[in-house]
Design a protein around this nucleic acid. Sequence first.
RNA 1: CGGGGUGUAGUAUAGAGGUAGUACGUCUGCUUUGGGAGCAGAUAGCCCGAGUUCGAUUCUCGGCACCCCGACCA
Length: 417
Amino acid sequence: MLQSKLFTKTRKEAPADEVSKNAEFLIRAGFVDKLQAGVYTYLPLGLRVLKKIENIIREEMNRAEGVEILMPSLHPKENWETTGRWETMDDLYKVSDTSGRENALGPTHEEVVVPLAKKFVSSYRDLPVYIYQIQNKFRMELRAKSGVLRGREFIMKDLYSFHTNEEDLKKYYEVMKTAYENVFKRAGIGINTYLTFASGGSFSKYSHEFQAVSEAGEDTIHICDKCRIAVNEEIISDQSTCPECGADDLRKEKAIEVGNIFELKTKYSKPFNLTYKDEAGNDKDVIMGCYGIGLGRLMGTVVEILSDEKGMVWPEEIAPFKVHLLELSSDDIEVSKKASEVYEMLNKAGVETLHDDRTDKTAGEKFADSDLIGIPYRVLVSDKSLKAGGVEIKKRTEKDSRIVSIDELMTEFPQNK
RNA sequence: CGGGGUGUAGUAUAGAGGUAGUACGUCUGCUUUGGGAGCAGAUAGCCCGAGUUCGAUUCUCGGCACCCCGACCA
């Protein structure tokens, strides 16, 4: 993509009232735009990151035999009354139309997916099933905060599993744990993320969260470094040692909840009377689990954890582009010609490239933008580089660049797909 | 939802009860081109409502928005 065609611009200064690092960098670099507190537009660069995160999650869910669907955001009030949450859930958005009919804007989808499953599941032969979607959620957060980390409208992957018994649920629970570990590893925060024992809320004693260590986090976790497992402070009075090895010298850190997995059991199958017939022909309650990952939050978490003082540092798998190709303007039109050639070459080879072809920007501004945007490889074409025999290449994580000939440039990007 | 803070141009800010200023951006022209470059000119603004006052963007009250702390968070 040509940077001159990008309709967004970078900004030198962050909005005065944003203190969180993810908001500052994502807004300055033109990845997102804030419409109102907790509600964001994804701009071209940010959308590319979001889509890559989405695809990673989709691949891992499919690998775990999930089947993708897309459910509506507009939910009939009756479904929420069936579970009792129309009255009890205080962050539920309620909308009514001119006929007076009331709807909920979905903050989660048990109220839709369970009645849906009821239409197709009737026998033990139909189970287990794993249904997921990647879709917008609405939650009336009384205090949206920390940039994209806690929004009122956000995109979430939510998967619901349906089983004949608890053993089967537990088995799938383990499959999901692995899938989640893969997601966070591929998103570049694997080493920062811990499986964490947490409160199960109102209907199960414990749940599991995936917590990424960061000062920007809202939670405090106690980590066992030996087992790479943590305990959320909210249950530390019940569980003050490592659930795995019993160690009691746990390390305390702030962390961001990037994913969670819950055993719902019969919490939602009961109110909707979702049952199946077992081998003997008896009706039994379907056992459920649910598993969520917030996509925007994951993106914001990567920014929080991997940025430096100059800007963002994207891991290759979710970077908006692999290469940021800069050309430094010069009287010598050869530079511009060579830069276009390199751009064509990278495109042909399938290397995603953002070409900073802007002619009205100074070198300093281009470098600063490049650092801010945080694309993994910076390739520079200039008078100097051409005289030295080619182009300069530098990783975002490295300080010094080196010259490679244009012919050898392609060997710098081993195809990873 | 409780507490605190802040609302002045696209962005960041200064300011006074009486003509609103600076920087960046943007636009025009020229110069420049390896870390947000220079000169000249132009563009654009006091969150909303009520009150006090001859006069309010400034003071008072109310509202709204945003940020922070807390509570809440399937």
